[in-house]
């Protein structure tokens, strides 16, 4: 399987940490991931309506198993904090081919807790993630998104993702970081 990536390099980039005030006047800080328990708490409280393509899982055991894969070595993880809570998470997970060899391609996903959506956190998270990814030497990034999720598709386009496979239910998009 070979994916198509744009010629243009994506961006802008803004590696963590940084802080900003969101559209609802909340002080949000974007940092590199280090606290598994706080992330488990975020996903336990996650609205099932905001699940996409089967993730995040719903039970605590499944959430912990899934996070083991997501925050494994070789990936990049960035979170948004509000006070003592994680309210958003963005991740780059390394891709493997059929022989379990690491490909130089990373799958991207981003989750924001319902009460914090549409307040600019998603865009801050993704530019921070791409910045951290670029610092880690990552080049090619891809994702899939449900076609009806216009807010997400717009966010991905804004930071340089272009559709790479239009034949399926989900839209596949790719970006180059370098």
């Amino acid at each position: 399987m070979s994916r198509i990536y744009p010629d243009e390099v994506a961006g802008p980039y803004d590696p963590p940490p940084h802080a900003f005030t969101d559209k609802a006047d909340r002080e949000i800080s974007i940092r590199r991931f280090e606290d598994t328990e706080a992330l488990v708490e975020m996903y336990l409280a996650f609205d099932p309506e905001d699940r996409a393509q089967g993730i995040p899982p719903t039970t605590e055991d499944e959430i912990r198993d899934w996070l083991d894969t997501v925050v494994s070595d070789g990936g990049v993880n960035v979170v948004a904090w509000h006070g003592g809570d994680i309210v958003g998470h963005a991740t780059l997970v390394p891709d493997f081919d059929n022989e379990e060899t690491t490909l130089d391609e990373f799958e991207l996903a981003i989750f924001v807790v319902a009460a914090y959506q549409e307040s600019g956190i998603g865009s801050q998270l993704i530019t921070a993630l791409l910045g951290a990814g670029r610092e880690a030497g990552i080049d090619r990034v891809w994702l899939t998104v449900e076609r009806w999720n216009h807010a997400a598709v717009e966010l991905y386009e804004k930071v340089g993702f272009e559709p790479s496979d239009t034949g399926n239910f989900e839209l596949e998009m790719g970006a180059r970081l370098r």
Partner: peptide, 15 residues
Amino acid sequence: ETSPLGKVQLGSIAE
């Protein structure tokens, strides 16, 4: 099939 991140991706035949 599931992606590295665990997203379910339906094949073209199923669709």
